[in-house]
Design a protein around this nucleic acid. Sequence first.
DNA 1: GTCTTGCATGGGT
DNA 2: AACCCATGCAAGA
Length: 876
Amino acid sequence: MSSSSPKICFNSNCKDVLERSRKGWRRRTGEFADLCDRCATAYEEGKFCETFHLNASGWRCCESCGKQIHCGCIVSFHTFVLLDAGGIECINCARKSFILTPNPAWPPPSLFLPVLPDRIKDLSVKNWSQIAGSGPVPWRQAPSLLNSSAQSELHPRMPFEVDIPSSVDRLIASERLSASSLEKKKIEDSSERLMNGSLQLGASTVLENGNAGIKREDQPNPSVNVPQQSSFSKNDLSAPHFSLTVSSTSPNDSNDQTKVSGTHAHCPTPPPPLGKQCSGHNGVDSSSEPQIRNGRPRGDARGRNQLLPRYWPRITDQELQQISGDSNSVITPLFEKMLSASDAGRIGRLVLPKKCAEAYFPPISQPEGLPLRVQDSKGKEWIFQFRFWPNNNSRMYVLEGVTPCIQSMQLQAGDIVTFSRLEPEGKLVMGFRKASTALPSDQGNETINTANGVSTHGDANSADPASTWSKVDKSGYIAKEVVGTKSTFRIKRKKSILGSKTKRLRIENEGLIELKLTLEQAQGLLRAPPNHVPSVVVIEGFEFEEYEDAPIIGRPTIFATDLVGEKIQWAQCEDCFKWRKVPADALLPSRWICSENSWDPERSLCSAAQELTAEQLEDLLPTSNRAASKKMKAAKQDPDSVEALEGLDTLANLAIQEEGEAIPSSSQATTKHPRHRPGCSCIVCIQPPSGKGPKHKQTCTCNVCLTVKRRFRTLMLRREKKQSEKEAETARQKQQQQQLQLPDDDIQLCGNTGNSSPNQKMVASEDPDNDTSRRKSSLSPFKGQIDLNIQPEREEELSPGSDSGGMIRLIQDATERYLRQQRLSGSGGNRNSTGNQAQLDVVGGGNFSNSVAGGSSHQGVEADHPVTLSINPPAS
DNA sequence: GTCTTGCATGGGT
DNA sequence: AACCCATGCAAGA
């Protein structure tokens, strides 16, 4: 690993030839020191310095416990913290005493310090120079801003975060898992705390004495020109925020609170008078902050420390520079917010995060608030009304009148507005960052996009952000975002901000594929999680496996028993479609091929013959799970057919997020409802998918419309006939009871299971003279609404543009005509209908609901009838 | 009918 | 469980 001495132990006191290289500490280059066994062991046992550096300088005692620590050595670099008052404390004691400040991170800034504007650099130097003994190294995010939530939340890296933290994290959390005398857990614990810790300044000896190479004279470090985004960004989700935190000797700061400017990393702007401004603000009670000694919380951070990470400002140097222009002003980033649809909408109200508003904006006691002068990044001044609404015993802060500004910046939902303060004027500055735009300081889009969480929803080109919102439509299709390289963080960010509500989920349109498969098929994909035995529930005659834990989605297989009675699975190769025997407990990936058949090397090639004959496969069918049997049938019918199983594979693919290609659905079932076979002429199957196909006019003579009309006509005829048959009430009741016991193939006009002979039943149900049907139709329970292949409870959700909606309108028109007729002919029919409603709800709507809930593959007749056509005149 | 305003609601954290 | 906040929505302009 070591580039300099790959075969020699990296320990200069050892220099043994490496027989086996073991990783030691992280070097300045970011690589790990390659150690021999002996040194590595010493290192891992925390005895490295004791062993090899005993006579070296830099040994110091922990101020608390007196333990000797070699502070001048990279190896022990993480095992102590520098105390404000000088001296050091071992990490154990630091942890106990809530000193959360880490030591300067490693590798040193020569590698990762971001670009600092000259002005900032100067300031940095100046401020650093005020810090006794602190080296020009990036420090962890100092403000107590991090105290509250950072620990529990993986936040996206800030664009100007220095990536050194990653190394510290690694040093502590990974590289040094066994390091030192600290037990692992403590170390991790400490590292976590350290992430949130603030800066301990004042002790410099470690840097000056050490061989770590961080010397104050190095600063300003040439490395500041290195791109901000290091390669660590990606894999350092939990990277703490480093900040160039500046110690202040301000007399105001009696509590040793360090004023912070530039809340982040490389923005060591000078201490602003922010603390004063915000300290008395309502709602931010510093007393609630944990009592932490050594100067935390910072004055400035009183409000900030309670901010959610998503509001932490991520303003880049360039942005800062742009905002501050050529003036001598210093920008203090305050917070940022991603614009919601409401924010960016026409209402012109920008909801302000409460804590941010209370921390950084002037206190307001009246809901009317006050006008707030805000300057945009171009220097243009805007005046917004900063006010609040009472809300649940709290307040909701808004900036009103932001529309012109938002428009001026051409912002839209998903973009980010940043609020900063211009010092010393104290002027508020509003910047922005387009969601789609890589930060100016980007050195790599991927890194920045993933790291700063800004690029949240991808499609920057969409003029209308709303158009990019996901349409997880009601048809039941599953929309999947094709995840690209940015997916991980984008999804995370999406979830945390944009997608906080499912209905607001935003997914790129182009990434949508349709997934059409039945529950039956899906069931075939599910496997009980490891060590779980699924329980079987029978719903309407169909067995469902229930899993206590989340099931695993894998390749559908056929479970069987081999000749010796051992349970096995039959799995089909993705490539050759041959069936291979695998152990019963094997969970195969959705795309499984012969070469992965490690259980049977002889058949680990597609060229190997299949064990099973077609007949055997056929025999297996009854014992197989349904999805698999379908699959097998398809394979039998057409061994080369891939499509037959692609619906299944689609889900499996989704599960493993392999490919985002739209895959045609299974050819075995129609896309409308799975039990219906091709050729089924039911109302559902003859329709195009929801939302597709042309709209139907009343005069439309297409197959769908004709069918609907015909059926409706039939229904009407039956109803008329029924009315004329009104006789004794008791007799009718009796008749109804009989009807309820009869197969329900009329209300659900397409009530044919695909299993047997759908068309026969269809014909029967369409027969206007069919008495059974006629009687049933007269009992239709619904009121003035006709339900075509939708859930009754969802009828209000019908999209007017959808085909279903068109059908609905079509029938509704007819219904209205019918109702008019009814009104003319009296109210008897109404009574009939309403009188029967309760019962028929069970027959019609009730069963339909069940079919939806219970799955589409029930053997029950009614469950197989997703289409209901029912009519009910209004009660009035 | 449209826009504005202020509050209510409810999902998410 | 409390709080936050995005959005809905009704009343008023």
